[in-house]
Each structure stands twice: as C-alpha cells, then as structure tokens.
Design a protein around this nucleic acid. Structure first.
Lengths: 88, 88
DNA sequence: TTGTCATGTCAATAAATTTCGATATGTTGG
DNA sequence: CCAACATATCGAAATTTATTGACATGACAA
C-alpha cells in the first residue's frame, strides 16, 4: 500500500495517469507518444505503476494495454482516509 | 497537492507520521529518539513533510512541536478520491 | 555574559532513482 | 523462415535524494 504513494509521488507518473479517460485503455506506444520521455523511460514508469497495482495490463498480440486499477486506487485511498479520520 | 504523495512515498516519513497519536504533538527530540536515523536526517524529513503541509509546526521556547495537519490530509485524499471516482 | 540545550543548516558523501540508447524478446504478416 | 513491429530489459551516465557529523542559531537559566 505504501508503494502506491511512491508510485503517485512522481510528476511523470502523474502525467501518465492523467492521460487515461474514464475506463480507457492505452498501449505503450500511445503513452510514449504523449510523453516527452524516451520509450524505455516510459516503460520503466509503467513498471513502477504496475508494481504498485495502480495500473493493470494485458498483452494482446504485439501490444500491451494498460488501464487504471480504479478498484485498488479507491480502496487504498479509502483506507488511508479512514485511518486519518480515526487516528489523526 | 502532488507534494503530499511524494512526502508520503517514503518509508521513514511514513514511520514518523505513525508515531503521532490522535491529536498529539511531538517535538523533534521525541521524533528523533523514536527513529534509527540521525537527528539531522530526521530534521530533513520533517522539512519535507512540512513543505507538503502534512505536518504543522510551532516553536515554543527552545523546542519545535509538530502535529499532523489532519484537515489538509483529509481534504487532499478526499479530492483525489473524488477525482478517481469520477474519472477512472 | 556564559553555558547549556533544542533545533536548523551546511558540505560532503552515499545511495537510490531516472534517463537513454542499444540490444533482446516475442508477435504478426509475407 | 524472414522482416517489420511493439515492447521489455540491460548497462552506463546523469540526476536527485538521503544521510551524516560538524557547526550555527537562538532561547533560557544561572
């Protein structure tokens, strides 16, 4: 769960997340095209986001499609918010 | 707002935040004593947390007291959660 | 004023992360 | 099989962040 905050605590990764429209899936090429970073760098950030379970992915043919793990994000933020309300 | 995630995305800073009981105020000495890090390192992390507005501080005499900015934390998490629910 | 205590700041080093190009892997179409 | 394509991975360099002890500051008490 702590990994989520690390993942979200980077400007480029935040930009990547903001690319996604509601329920949209994007492949690496689309994400890289919208970024100023090199493809391999984008790949690195996607790995971090995936490891934090913020993004899900599925490989279809040659392409890998990513989408936001809304459920996990919501659950994590909800838990932290509940903790704050109860203990802070 | 993005700074909050950066601030929370560090293990040592998370530990520091978890030290605080509900509504409690702690001074730098108490926080440093509960940590394995050097005092100057703790001071650095407190600065980061303060810059992100996660912690408030007040100097009283020789000591500086810190406490959690519950309102800001709650507001930030609430906003992000609302965004996620609406756009993800 | 002098000494002590709590904390902040500085400069140097260490460690972690980011970044990129080159290369590898795996997939599809010819 | 071969070529073209999408993506991942590797290794090195660059950048950022973390870490520390030494020193500075500022408050209080004697």
């Amino acid at each position: 769960m702590a990994r989520v905050f690390t993942a979200l605590g980077d400007e480029h990764r935040q930009r990547i997340l903001l690319l996604f429209d509601k329920g949209e899936r994007l492949n690496v090429g689309q994400i890289a095209a919208a970024s100023t970073l090199a493809r391999s760098t984008v790949s690195h950030h996607l790995k971090v986001l995936h490891a934090a379970e913020v993004l899900c992915s599925e490989k279809i043919g040659k392409e890998v499609w990513f989408w936001i793990n809304r459920r996990w994000l919501e659950e994590t933020l909800d838990n932290v918010l509940a903790y704050v309300r109860q203990n802070c």
